[in-house]
Design a protein around this nucleic acid. Structure first.
Lengths: 343, 343
DNA sequence: TTGAAAGCGATACCAC
DNA sequence: GTGGTATCGCTTTCAA
């Protein structure tokens, strides 16, 4: 537990000088710098977070949050966790600016991100997988702003790190689980939000990978429900009518799960149908408790929010760079008995 | 973001006086006290953690950790997480004293706990469910020491809070899952560590509750493996020989799972056996990847450790009382595809 | 019963 | 380039 003051005393310089060296602020003679650095290393100096935090109050830190979250229930939990974190971090002088939008309009997201340049010190974004977004993220990082992607990543961008889940693994887990709990040969219908959403595409990929290597399961049809329950109801009804042999449904959607359930119910197929879905939004929990859905993959929404906030906070207040490029939370299987989580 | 100084200015008193009121240190005229309190409430005063933490360095805080963890692999992860937390909290002047022992000797645990009186400010303990332990915990709490139980709770004690999982729910989840993934009618053999361990008893209770209400499953035999692989191998071999109709094994043990697997393998019963177990220690992961075990219930060992440390830290450094009496982490289902967790 | 002042560790800023 | 000083918010101690 060495302090800057102690190092200063040992080296016979002032705390200001030590501070300059330790934080690479320049304006120190090379030989002094060397000495200070070696003493700090020798004594294993690590800054005291409380001291840093207190001093950080003097600067104004701005974190921008840009998410197309409106209307997607999964995000409600993520955002609730982020707001809790915001509150506890506010003591440290960190301000948060929220840009929550509805739908995947590239223009809207682009403008929101552009607006953060020259103002924010860090940005958390759930990005649309689009070239213009990649461009604006590059401009942000070029301006020294830390960019964290949450829940969905964006391929080939300069963002600092990603917080979310391994979507391919999620699909694989769902596929393997479906085969474990399904009865007899599985004829699978798939409903997903949109192939334009990277996560859904990857889930499908993982699921196919598992199912294609199995003799007891076969994918019969795939439909896109646009993350909308009404649309999902229509499309899934048609899918079930066209393929009455379907006896299992994999829902990789984020917004159309309830609609798919209603289609199954309307077609009076609940008895012999195996359904595996994602997330634990209220309607999904209800469907699990009514035995319409057998299992769901839980993706730690709360911890996704917490983790992203923590990374931003550690960077802004403590100057700590993220340790990893990807913070992947695990895919958990939930059934009726454990779907209502505790803490 | 009001500070003590601002409240002092508003009330026309000194910061010392405000501090005395806010921390119930007495020696303040009732009318001043009233005024200060009402202003603080009005302005929604919440102490700045950084300031508190910095000032807390002046006092020496001691946390005692007492766990019969030696030789139980599950605890390795819990303790690793606790050590990480210890390191990061050390900046705040919190010292940790470890008492890790092997086996469930009441005397040993009693002495370790007694040793903390008059020295520790908080204690984290994985208690043996015994009257003498209850007594010594009472002495600790009577002396103003915060006591947190971890992983296993102790009935009717004065401990402040418990961090762990809902064991009954864990048993229920395992029971329901086993029926989902098992084939045909299930004749179940159960192996558990010891009925003397509260957690194992509760797991069994939850499991029985689910299975007893089902027509497709029946518990054939229960054996105790003393959390030891060799013993478990013996007992389970005998159980399988005596009851060849057993086609499913529920292992609620913490140390005898691998031994049970070896018994199943030796009896050449791996093909038609459904095994559901607890935790993800290395040997269990290996058995899952070899298709000997089909599923396991994951109990967030890492987060158990983190949470307990966090509660102790928040209390010692910030004076925050735990918000809940039980911090229950969820029971997660892991299969081959998601058993190797990420973060 | 109260106020004033020192200090916890790190940083910003102003002199020189 | 460098040192000194004030400051962040809170607690503790000493003096009155």
């Amino acid at each position: 537990m060495v302090t800057i003051k102690q190092i200063a005393d040992i080296c016979g310089v002032s705390r200001g000088t030590v501070d300059r060296v330790l934080n690479n602020r320049g304006n120190v003679k090379p030989e002094k710098k060397e000495m200070i650095l070696s003493v700090a290393r020798e004594l294993d100096y690590t800054p005291n977070p409380a001291g840093k935090a207190l001093a950080a109050r003097k600067t104004k830190l701005l974190l921008g949050i840009v998410m197309p979250s409106v209307g997607i229930e999964f995000f409600d939990i993520v955002i609730d966790a982020m707001k809790k974190a915001e509150k506890s971090y506010s003591y440290y002088g960190m301000k948060v600016e929220w840009h929550l939008t509805k739908g995947y309009d590239v223009d809207v997201q682009y403008k929101a991100l552009e607006n953060m340049i020259d103002r924010a010190n860090a940005v958390i974004v759930s990005p649309i997988n689009d070239d213009r977004i990649r461009d604006i993220i590059k401009r942000l990082t070029d301006n020294g702003i830390m960019v964290i992607t949450i829940n969905t990543d964006i391929e080939g961008s300069t963002r600092h790190c990603f917080v979310g889940t391994d979507y391919v693994n999620g699909g694989m887990t769902a596929g393997a689980l479906m085969q474990m709990i399904g009865h007899g040969k599985l004829n699978i219908g798939i409903t997903l939000g949109s192939l334009k959403i990277l996560g859904h595409k990857l889930r499908l990929k993982g699921f196919e990978k598992i199912v294609d290597s199995s003799k007891n399961a076969k994918i019969i049809a795939v439909t896109e429900d646009e993350d909308d329950d009404i649309c999902s109801y229509d499309r899934n009804t048609r899918m079930l009518q066209e393929h009455p042999e379907i006896n299992a449904i994999f829902a990789a959607s984020s917004g159309g799960i309830y609609g798919a359930c209603r289609a199954v119910m309307a077609q009076k197929r609940t008895k012999d149908m195996t359904m595996v879905v994602f997330d634990t939004i209220p309607s999904t929990i209800e469907m699990i408790e009514s035995d319409i859905i057998q299992a769901t993959i839980y993706q730690h929404p709360r911890r996704q929010g917490q983790t992203a906030m923590q990374i931003a906070f550690d960077y802004l207040v403590y100057g700590i760079q993220p340790a990893k490029e990807k913070y992947l939370l695990s895919n958990e299987i939930r059934i009726k008995e454990n779907v209502r989580a505790y803490y």
